[in-house]
């Protein structure tokens, strides 16, 4: 189930990336970031009903989930949060300055001068 969700998220992300609006582009990036986090989680083994925390009582390793992907995904989520805020702030500024939300307007820096 979750793997299908990852596929859907990636598809939606790529579709959004190909849109002309910058805001949709950013939404696409956020989709892709979440899809990647889930992908890491699933590929590294996501199991239901097993915590990754050891309290003195549990001694059987098979009752525990691998804590590594949880740590990885947590870090990745934090980084993704920072990036999302930064790119949204950037987009907001860009909108204020130019009043446009169109990716096709983003061609001044590539023009021959």
């Amino acid at each position: 189930m979750l793997s299908i969700l990852v596929g859907v998220l990636y598809t939606a992300g790529v579709y959004m990336l190909l849109r002309r609006s910058i805001l949709k582009f950013i939404i696409g990036i956020i989709f892709m970031s979440n899809a990647t986090n889930l992908l890491v989680f699933i590929s590294a083994g996501l199991v239901a009903g097993k915590p990754a925390f050891v309290n003195g009582a549990t001694t059987n390793v098979s009752q525990l989930a691998d804590p590594m992907p949880q740590a990885l995904v947590l870090t990745a989520i934090v980084i993704g949060l920072g990036m999302a805020v930064f790119i949204l702030a950037l987009k907001y500024k860009y909108f204020e300055v130019t009043g446009t939300d169109d990716l096709d307007q983003l061609k001044q820096t590539d023009s021959q001068k």
């Binding site: 920072g82 805020v85 949204l88 702030a89 907001y92 500024k93 204020e96 300055v97």
Partner: peptide
């Protein structure tokens, strides 16, 4: 600090 800074940077109206 970072959270508050995010809030400020998303809401400030300094002109570019």
């Amino acid at each position: 600090g970072v959270t508050v800074l995010f809030l400020f940077s998303l809401s400030n109206n300094k002109s570019w």
